[in-house]
Amino acid sequence: MHTLARRRPNGAAWAIVSVAVAIVATLVAVPVGAVFVYAFSRGFDPVLRTLARADVHSAMGLSALAAAVSVPFVTVFGVAAAWVVTRTELPSRRALAAILNVPFAIPPVVAGLLLVLVVGPHTPLGYWLAARGFPVLFAAPGIILATSLVSLSVVAKDLIPLMEALGPAEELAARSLGATPFQAFVRVTLPGLSLPLLHATVGALARALGEFGSVSVVSGRIRGETMTVPLLIEALYGEYDQTGAFVLAALLALVAIASLAVKKAVEAAVARTVNAEEVSP
């Protein structure tokens, strides 16, 4: 076994590895590296100046707000949806499982346009809200809604295969020991999912912070008010403020890399417990 696995790679293997490395380098490492190089290409001063700008602060604040609301929302929704799909016999659970694919399947721009159709000021709901001083479109609620909509299934899709694989045995055991359904969920289902949930939540966070297409439709692009970080990056790039655009891009890239690191660490932790399970006689 070991000798097979540790066989010295031959020429073909080297060639395949080299091509793979070259592709990853060209498509991923070089562009990501370039973002940081461009960001600092004129030294630290422009970077600091960009980070001190009021419209940059407001964009960061809005992106953070959108993530702060949408991530808990899609997490709660995701856990509930995954639970219904994998732990109940409801006739609608197959429909729900199918519907969960929709936010992935529709392009974000279309998601934005859907919001215009549903909560735009010319719709009854949008009109009713706006008339009460709560406009949705071209204001923070619309951006939060758009962000939530496109990342709606992220957590559910992450959890469903896992909960499917784990099966209902632990919950059944809890019920047979006298736990109420609520106790079984809170004391067994949720704690058992803590690492996968962290994994899924980080994914939702990355998605929320990076969302462009749907937000661009409902933002109205009011500087200092309804611009998120990705929108501002595009605007700055179009305004020949390359440094500004790349500083913010580098910031988003950092967040993405950090979330990737967290996800990988979680995966490693999960793999460790699973391996231990297999090794024991």
Binding site: L65, V69, P121, L129, A130, R132, G133, F134, P135, V136, L137, F138, A139, A140, P141, I144, L145, G220, I222, E225, T226
Partner: peptide, 13 residues
């Protein structure tokens, strides 16, 4: 947030 969003800034009201 839907309702809160309206209290600070609004474009339509």
């Amino acid at each position: 947030a839907l309702t809160l969003g309206g209290c600070g800034k609004s474009t339509g009201s």
